[in-house]
Write a protein that binds this DNA or RNA. Structure first.
Lengths: 152, 152
DNA sequence: GTTGAAAACAATGTTGG
DNA sequence: CCAACATTGTTTTCAAC
């Protein structure tokens, strides 16, 4: 990982479909050497994949929220986790330290769907306590820009 | 947005560098028609970009956390937001409803860096109250799989 | 939507620094 | 570690339908 690799990462984060030829021009290497560096970044796991980024609002799910949950104690956390993630609006979740066991990220069509989801959790998924926070706004410079900044 | 577009999205989410030829084979259209659909998905904002996904741990930042913060009341929230996001370890933040004003996502090299960040917030960035939650584990099926599930 | 041809591109091997 | 070049097959793009 030298400065050229960091530039490669920056460019591929901003456009994951750049051709090796164009990418090579930006890092002033030959396409061959550039492709080889990209291959190694993938092999070593620095690049974990190339993905299209989908706008959830454009897909009809403009309402984003975090749902912090605490689960009923017991040996069946794996099943409860799977059940929570199987809810259609749930995008993902992480196990965290502190007062809550998990923070789930959800994207709903409207508040009715969010309401249904929130009602289902204690009823069907072993949730004994929860707290929902609607996302009002994403701060400018979140995401791509921040990772780019990490790369100098 | 028909079933073919949804298949295109699913495939490009799992591999953003698929050639139009391969993508076309999977949706049983010609490469030309497939490329045109992808172009329209981008133009209408459904696909907001193609990006390389980098593994933060492989970049030397294995420690992820959420930091919930409440800011000092006042007219200068925009500057405070910018100051928070300028911290190197801060990946992004969202303005949320509820007890906390913002939830920041951070990726640190180690606990020392997290400690420094947490100390700096009340000192330099107008944070009057905060709560840090370490990410212990990401639930299997978060992220890509969930968006794919939304597409049926 | 399709087809087909031209242009651009990627992958590989070789030579050499 | 890299460049430069040639080769071969693939991919994209574009006109015409």
């Amino acid at each position: 990982m030298d400065a050229i690799d960091r530039t490669i990462l920056t460019e591929l984060i901003s456009d994951g479909r750049l051709s090796f030829r164009d990418l090579a021009a930006r890092v002033r290497l030959s396409p061959t050497a550039t492709a080889e560096r990209v291959r190694r970044l993938q092999e070593t796991g620095v690049i974990s994949g190339f993905r299209a980024e989908v706008d959830l609002a454009a897909l009809g799910r403009p309402l984003r929220a975090f749902i912090d949950v605490r689960l009923r104690p017991g040996p069946d956390h794996a099943e409860l986790e799977a059940g929570l993630l199987d809810q259609p609006a749930v995008l993902g979740g992480v196990h965290v330290t502190g007062r809550w066991d998990y923070t789930l990220t959800v994207a709903c069509r409207d508040v009715a769907e969010l309401d249904e989801l929130v009602m289902a959790m204690p009823r069907d998924h072993g949730v004994v306590e929860m707290n929902t926070r609607l996302v009002l706004r994403e701060l400018a410079g979140s995401g791509v820009d921040a990772v780019t900044r990490l790369l100098g």
